[in-house]
Design a protein around this nucleic acid. Structure first.
Lengths: 222, 222
DNA sequence: TGTGTTCGTTAGAAGTTATAACTCCGATCT
DNA sequence: AGATCGGAGTTATAACTTCTAACGAACACA
């Protein structure tokens, strides 16, 4: 959708084909995972011959990177939309779970196993930073009021460390306890989600949603 | 190591070659990830011709499954060894992190992105159950004494759910609060570890080890 | 010493990504 | 309108991959 605002008819057509390629790629990924993504198969399903796709994507990696980018954007968009609608930390957690379960492979494309040498393109880390900013604001909102001045609850060792290493918080003046909460939100919920999506809870008998909800409760002040 | 106790010389040789194949496979995985594992490349490095390896592994999947099995066993062994040496929950957490950082791709082979249709072989889920048993015992050990009878701390909604869905705890009579603690141990530490190994903390400025330590502190009763 | 199993080989089928060279259509410029 | 130039799609091809089939040679064992 982002690159469909083109001037020339050629660019319009080009953007449309790229979009169609990505659509087929997502379908393929959803059923067989990203590692099984085949440019040839996509081309054939589109009625094209293999090498034709190289007019639109330099190589397989570029296509996958583009999919990762779109996935990141999708998650950041839902986060931002929810935040604008007044969502609190618990709402964001619920949105995250919904987004993940809606298309597990999309979640795993973002947060799953990377290839060893892979370096995320700068704009995706930019998007990730935006998401953390939204998360951080929500984390600040649930901090007990008046905590900023006195740092009411005793600062943990992690708090002290984060107070000195807050590069990722940019210019957000959130107290260290909020940084810690935002970080825990991310890692704990990802912990439950990724194990659930990978099927590691299968056969254990309990409901992952309850475990998730319990972590959310713990994160939002019980 | 497990299958090297063979009778006939042929079986000895066979087991030795299988072991060497796996050794090369691990090297390849460590540098390029599991998705880039090439039977052909392994054969050439061993001075063999491609199809020769099919005498030892039915196909690529069987080799990878075997590697996953070995990884599981390795993790379960270090857990069990530590537990036997009197390790508490914090020690187990430390061992887990060491094991993961020692060979990130090995950790990701166990807990990383699976292919959609993949069903873990029964014996690996068996090994996973053993690990949970060790974890559960350690979780029971840090429960406040006298909790079993009165369930001292108020039972959370998750506790009630786990009390009714404790299939994975087998015949372990641990209180629900211990089940919850063991589960949180697993998901929270995996959350930090997997994001760290996947490089999602890169550029954020803080030290993942501190975050990990903080989660361990929270898990072991502060 | 003979016999049969197993190992390793080459050949080949059916995939994959990716490049090169060529045709052809369409948009733009004169 | 007509020539031209760029981009789309084609086929052919190279270099990979997994995996099967058929063959020869080596080795253990009776």
């Amino acid at each position: 959708m982002a690159e469909s605002d083109a001037k020339t008819p050629r660019e319009r057509y080009r953007a449309q084909v790229r979009e169609e390629v990505k659509k087929h790629a997502w379908e393929q990924i959803a059923t067989a995972g990203a590692s099984a993504l085949s440019l040839n198969a996509i081309a054939k399903r589109m009625g094209l011959s293999g090498p034709a796709l190289y007019r639109y994507f330099a190589n397989r990696d570029e296509l996958i990177t583009e999919l990762v980018r779109d996935a990141y954007r999708s998650l950041a968009d839902t986060f931002r939309a929810r935040a604008r609608a007044g969502a609190d930390l618990a709402d964001l957690a619920h949105a995250l779970r919904g987004w993940a379960l809606d298309d597990p492979q999309r979640y795993l494309l973002v947060y799953g196993t990377p290839v060893p040498g892979y370096q995320a393109p700068p704009d995706t880390t930019q998007i990730a930073a935006e998401m953390m900013a939204v998360l951080l604001d929500a984390a600040v909102a649930v901090e007990p009021p008046g905590a900023e001045a006195a740092e009411s609850a005793a600062a943990t060792p992690l708090d002290e460390h984060l107070a000195d290493h807050r590069a990722w918080a940019a210019e957000n003046p959130a107290p260290a306890s909020a940084l810690r909460r935002a970080l825990a939100f991310w890692t704990r919920l990802h912990g439950v989600l990724s194990l659930e999506l990978a099927g590691h809870f299968a056969g254990m008998g309990f409901d992952p949603a309850r475990l998730y909800a319990a972590e959310v409760d713990g994160l939002t002040g019980r």
